[in-house]
């Protein structure tokens, strides 16, 4: 006791370690050059008609006014939101169920289950894209084989708006469900046992306990996963790109599954319109910000009940 007090006063007396700046310098320098500066500079480029090998002309807000009148932009917004919604809602519900099933101290092979559900997460996104593009193929895909064996019509997954979104969402969902389940599981395991014991005494059944104790207690984890999947979902790129095969960055013949990052890439590195691509980047940034805030508020309210 006296020892800690002595140490504490000693620490108070000790002067600042200015050498701390040397420790944090590498992070701040590299991050400043390759992270922070480009984000700010994007705003500057967005105000220009900027051709990387040609001229750079100041155009004011023209790129932004063009953006809001560009049907390709709104199409990409719709696709991005649709894919995000179709992938996130079932993904988080499955993750909750999975975590609840794993959250039992007497479960056998617990480590095996946890590792297995994480396999999709360590599979590269390109691999996921290629595997599922094959599964959702029109001619010889496994999905159509299953549809047919259940007596249903085979689908041209790629050509439809909704069917292509479902296929792409399946990839996202497959990759992330296990990861989210582990986050929920960690949160569930840190819930104090007494809460459940009190509920047992009150005679609450499993489902009541789940909705009135578990869900409110893991609220921070739920908010975390919702925000992470929002930020990721708004930037979804590789899955729709691979799903499109050779159609490159347009996301299908009618742009039926072109997402915002694909449009950004198409304009920036397909057509070298750096100014317009930068405007798309900023729009995407604002969208992510708004959606994150809205989700945060909704999630808070829902899981509080």
């Amino acid at each position: 006791m006296t020892q800690t007090r002595a140490l504490r006063t000693k620490r108070k007396k000790s002067r600042n370690d200015l050498s701390g700046y040397f420790y944090i310098a590498p992070f701040f320098i590299v991050f400043g050059v390759f992270g922070a500066f480009p984000i700010v500079y994007t705003a500057w480029i967005a105000l220009h008609d900027w051709n990387p090998i040609g001229t750079q002309t100041w155009v004011g807000l023209d790129n932004f006014t063009f953006l809001v009148s560009d049907p390709r932009f709104w199409n990409a917004v719709r696709n991005t939101f649709s894919i995000w919604f179709i992938s996130t809602v079932p993904q988080l519900l499955f993750a909750l169920i999975l975590a609840a099933a794993l959250n039992n101290a007497l479960l056998k092979w617990a480590t095996g289950y946890r590792m297995s559900i994480l396999v999709p997460q360590v599979t590269s996104v390109l691999a996921v894209g290629i595997i599922f593009t094959q599964i959702f193929g029109r001619e010889f895909g496994l999905a159509n084989y299953l549809l047919e064996s259940f007596g249903m019509e085979r689908l041209d997954w790629q050509s439809g708006v909704l069917s292509s979104h479902v296929a792409i969402s399946t990839m996202v969902m497959w990759r992330w469900t296990g990861y989210n389940a582990l986050i929920y599981l960690a949160a569930m395991q840190s819930i104090p046992r007494d809460l459940y014991e009190v509920a047992d005494i009150d005679g609450a059944n499993t489902f009541r306990k789940f909705f009135h104790i578990t869900i409110p207690q893991i609220r921070p984890a739920i908010i975390f996963t919702v925000i992470i999947s929002t930020i990721g979902g708004m930037q979804v790129f590789a899955e729709p790109l691979i799903f499109g095969g050779n159609s490159n960055f347009t996301g299908g013949s009618d742009r039926q599954f072109q997402t915002l990052t694909m449009l950004l890439y198409e304009q920036g590195f397909g057509r070298f319109k750096f100014g317009y691509a930068s405007a798309i980047a900023w729009a995407l940034f604002v969208i992510i910000l708004i959606v994150s805030i809205v989700n945060y508020m909704i999630t808070r309210r829902i899981s509080r009940e």
């Binding site: 992070f27 991050f31 050059v33 390759f34 992270g35 922070a36 500066f37 480009p38 984000i39 500079y41 994007t42 480029i45 990387p52 925000i227 930020i231 708004m234 930037q235 990052t261 950004l264 920036g268 590195f269 750096f274 691509a277 930068s278 980047a281 900023w282 995407l284 940034f285 992510i288 994150s292």
Partner: peptide, 19 residues
């Protein structure tokens, strides 16, 4: 540092490429 974790750095991709 914490705040930057929330920023999608992909959005700076045009200047990053120029750099």
């Amino acid at each position: 540092v914490i705040a930057t974790m929330m920023v999608p750095l992909q959005l700076g991709v045009i200047p990053q490429f120029i750099l």
